[in-house]
Design a protein around this nucleic acid. Sequence first.
DNA 1: GTGAAAGCGCTAACAC
DNA 2: GTGTTAGCGCTTTCAC
Lengths: 346, 346
Amino acid sequence: MKKKSITIYDIAREAKVSSATVSRVLAGNYPVKEETRKRVASIIDKYGFQPNAVARSLTKRETRMIGFVLPDITNPFFSQVFIEVEKYALTKGYALLLCNSMNDSEMESKHLKLLAERQVEGIIIMGGRINKSAPDRVEVNELSEIMNSLPVLMINGKIEGLDCYSIRTDEAKGIELIINYLVSIGHEKIALLGGIEGITTTDIKVEAYKSLISRHHLPFVPGWQIYSGFDISSGEQAMDKLLRNNKQDLPTAVIGINDMVVIGALRECGRRKIDLNEFSFVGFDNTNLAEISNPQLTTVSHQYSEIGRKAVDLLLNSKNEKHKNKDVEINPKLEIRDSCYEMIGN
Amino acid sequence: MKKKSITIYDIAREAKVSSATVSRVLAGNYPVKEETRKRVASIIDKYGFQPNAVARSLTKRETRMIGFVLPDITNPFFSQVFIEVEKYALTKGYALLLCNSMNDSEMESKHLKLLAERQVEGIIIMGGRINKSAPDRVEVNELSEIMNSLPVLMINGKIEGLDCYSIRTDEAKGIELIINYLVSIGHEKIALLGGIEGITTTDIKVEAYKSLISRHHLPFVPGWQIYSGFDISSGEQAMDKLLRNNKQDLPTAVIGINDMVVIGALRECGRRKIDLNEFSFVGFDNTNLAEISNPQLTTVSHQYSEIGRKAVDLLLNSKNEKHKNKDVEINPKLEIRDSCYEMIGN
DNA sequence: GTGAAAGCGCTAACAC
DNA sequence: GTGTTAGCGCTTTCAC
């Protein structure tokens, strides 16, 4: 690091021009006489000179960096969103600082603060504080503080009263797609497993579940909606509870709050040597786990690439199109695979 | 962005001190009279002032950023390495720029170049050019060019003649662990599926496989070692080929070049209604897929957190401890789960 | 213990 | 077309 790196001045001196001219050649979109341009370019080439982006950032006040805070990149839902954002950001010349909050609020705060200091041009956040049905006052204040200096965009989350960018899948619609589908193939007894009460993504789904059940005049059995969590073992636990507590009246279809929960539920069935055809399973998120699972999961898919594009566009255009619908909702799609069977005879 | 942000000069003026003093207060490790320190601190607080890290980077010539280039963060092997690196880097005050090369050499080059311009203090690279048994000349030159200005560290890769940092799991040892284990539970007919010839991580494993087979005086059947690729469908294809071409003489154990390939092999067996107990399966990498799989995979585990720590330490200490073993090899461990069964009677 | 001032490497007016 | 110059916001000698 400490080795004196070569600068625009070194190039200028050798090319017998001013630093400004070198800068113009670098920028490419200024009038420079072809002859001098060539001369400068050849010297740049000769030394493999690379302009210092930090210095450029300081003068231009743009870092071309976006911060991305999420709970855990090893979770395929997050990594699939991330990669789409990154791909699209790259086409715009932006790089991403990835910060894993590990579901730790303090860590999340720390990351947010550091990103702001690093002068990222925008922050994308998923999980954590933006998915609390009862937002934490302090956490929200931190966010709104940050929003004073740079645009913040939430993916699949929303905080009432915080006027920031938000883009999310219509999860209620997702549940609707699932239930309509299950009903269409003859199911009337439908369970919903997993999630945690108080997390928006869960609450939205549970509410939609109840409302759809009622709209279809299906039986609503409280014991068929079981909170537990978001990972595989949550799925196992919830399935176990479902089977233990409803011996006389089991559902025929099981919706998981996400793909992972369904995989847990499948495993619990496996452990109990229950024929998987006893139930139809539907996941949520269409992570790559849904394809890895055996059977492959029918699941609700986010439109990942659209989320990625919209997120970056919203963030980067935030300076121009002020207050132009900061709030985008994206339709989910039902991805039908092998985990559901048709009810025959009924 | 364009709103004039508050600077140390604003703080200085209001505190009736010089900017230098504010800077000292910020740094925290300089002698400042307690009284003035408090006064300055309170004003910093009052405005929620956050120093501009870009400006600081320019003067101090340190960005506290590390670049990480890998093929695809949605691949759990990479995300599991990444997250360990990120966690540890954070404790050192470093943030990570994550760049997905999508297995595209040009994209990889572009990322490397941009990271250098951004003045990251080091680059960690996985996949792509660093895993070619016959390295591409141009690609290697790019790397060595970059190594002139900043330290580069390869994870699970190595290029002969490139004197850069490297940290990798002893994969030959991993294969040894697997084969010794399989032999210990009575297997003598062992296949190796997946991978691509010419990719170091494959070549190392294939070579170790052959040498171990011979060391144990087991039969080496060429048709039991099948190249195909690294993903699930590669696993399916390889298993299919194994079953079709060796009808008279099938192995009893199947090693996958990685977990994903084994999951594909399992699926192919499922498709053919082959009892999974017909074969013992062993994966490689111990990604979280190994636990998700049904049955859960016995697999070779990388020591992810150790890799993360060592990688960051090597990179950040590179200025001091010049040329002190730049090359670290880490032992794998065998993670025994449910995908192998003991051969009885033999 | 504190301040003045010179950079860090680049860009952007503004002259010429 | 090209050069001069004044910053961008911070840190760091070097005086005092």
